[in-house]
């Protein structure tokens, strides 16, 4: 097991109380696995990604354990986390296009960053250049300022920089969102390539674009309103999902061969609950077509088949 998260609870502190953005999250990722993390905006995807690497106020750690390669991550302590960041766990942030300091040459920035982490830039540089070749960037970018690069180039630069020390886990947060479809595909393939070349052991790819995940992910974890809904292999999630939310999410994607001028693409009626004071029990209850009495209790996230986890009373009770 590469990453193991047990009962992780992370809230946002606000003047009106805690926003329960990440509630009781338990899952694991095996070595070499690319796990897609899907869900609508505000469901806690980015919070989950951030809480594994940079848990800063207003985020507040409540409880839970995170283990990476059988080593406990002190996610609640920023200074202790520094030892793990970049070397063991790394991130391509959502804002990758603005992630580089605009007033310093990229190569100089990397060299200063590496020497501040006690690495020798000269020794690492040949490997850095090999990886730039791999993502089709010229070595000249090291002598350029970030503003001289296009958005896609910056994203690839950040991909190379974040994975430079061969971390065990890479969190890629919405890295395809701002790109056109062909570039999206190229970036997605680069992620797989980096995994295959063992630059990173396993990955969490955060996105709301399930079609990208279908191309690259081994498994998909679906979140809803700060809670886990379903986790299974990509094929199962896309073809035979069990959780009502996943079913509706997948069915609201356009399908090849269907003309939507004749048939309207259906969405999921209703809105996500406010996480400042979410309803007790299943948070999807109000929008769920199959909700029943039991849904007022909290559904556990249980394994119903091998590697298929789900948090839904309907599906569990039917199985019993």
């Amino acid at each position: 097991m590469s990453l193991q998260i047990k009962n992780l609870v992370v809230y946002y502190q606000t003047l009106r109380g805690y926003v329960k953005a990440l509630d009781d999250v338990t899952f694991s990722i095996s070595d070499g696995e690319i796990m897609g993390l899907a869900g609508e905006s505000g469901c806690g995807k980015t919070t989950l990604g951030n809480s594994l690497i940079r848990l800063e106020p207003p985020m507040k750690y409540i409880k839970g354990d995170v283990e990476l390669d059988n080593e406990k991550l002190p996610v609640w302590n920023s200074s202790q986390m520094n030892a793990f960041r970049f070397k063991k766990i790394s991130i391509i942030p959502q804002y990758a296009m603005n992630a580089l300091n605009p007033t310093i040459k990229i190569g100089k920035m990397i060299s200063e960053l590496l020497s501040s982490r006690k690495f020798n830039y000269k020794k690492i540089k040949p490997e850095l250049e090999r990886r730039l070749d791999l993502v089709e960037l010229t070595h000249d970018v090291l002598n350029m300022y970030p503003i001289e690069l296009s958005g896609g180039m910056k994203q690839r630069m950040v991909l190379v920089l974040s994975t430079l020390l061969d971390p065990s886990l890479l969190i890629a947060d919405e890295i395809t969102s701002a790109l056109d479809v062909s570039t999206q595909k190229a970036v997605a393939e680069m992620l797989v390539e980096f995994r295959n070349r063992k630059f990173v052991k396993s990955m969490i790819v955060i996105t709301h674009d399930i079609s990208i995940l279908y191309q690259i992910a081994d498994s998909i974890l679906v979140m809803y309103a700060g809670k886990l809904a379903e986790k299974a292999s990509t094929n199962v999630i896309v073809n035979t999902p069990r959780h009502p939310y996943t079913k509706l999410l997948i069915s609201s994607l356009p399908k090849v061969g269907v003309r939507y001028t004749e048939k309207k693409l259906s969405g999921i009626p209703g809105n996500t609950p406010l996480l400042l004071d979410p309803p007790a029990g299943c948070r999807f209850r109000d929008r769920c077509p199959v909700a029943f009495d039991r849904c007022f209790e909290e559904p556990p996230f249980v394994e119903i088949e091998k590697d298929h986890y789900i948090a839904c009373w309907k599906e569990c009770t039917e199985n019993d």
Binding site: I91, A99, P102, L113
Partner: peptide, 28 residues
């Protein structure tokens, strides 16, 4: 609070380096 400072923090850069960059940019 800008993105590049947060990214450097995510990569475990020490406070002194982040402050150095932020100071330089804030000086402009």
């Amino acid at each position: 609070e800008s993105d590049y400072s947060h990214y450097l923090e995510s990569l475990g850069a020490p406070r002194s380096l982040i402050r150095k960059y932020a100071y330089r940019n804030a000086l402009l």
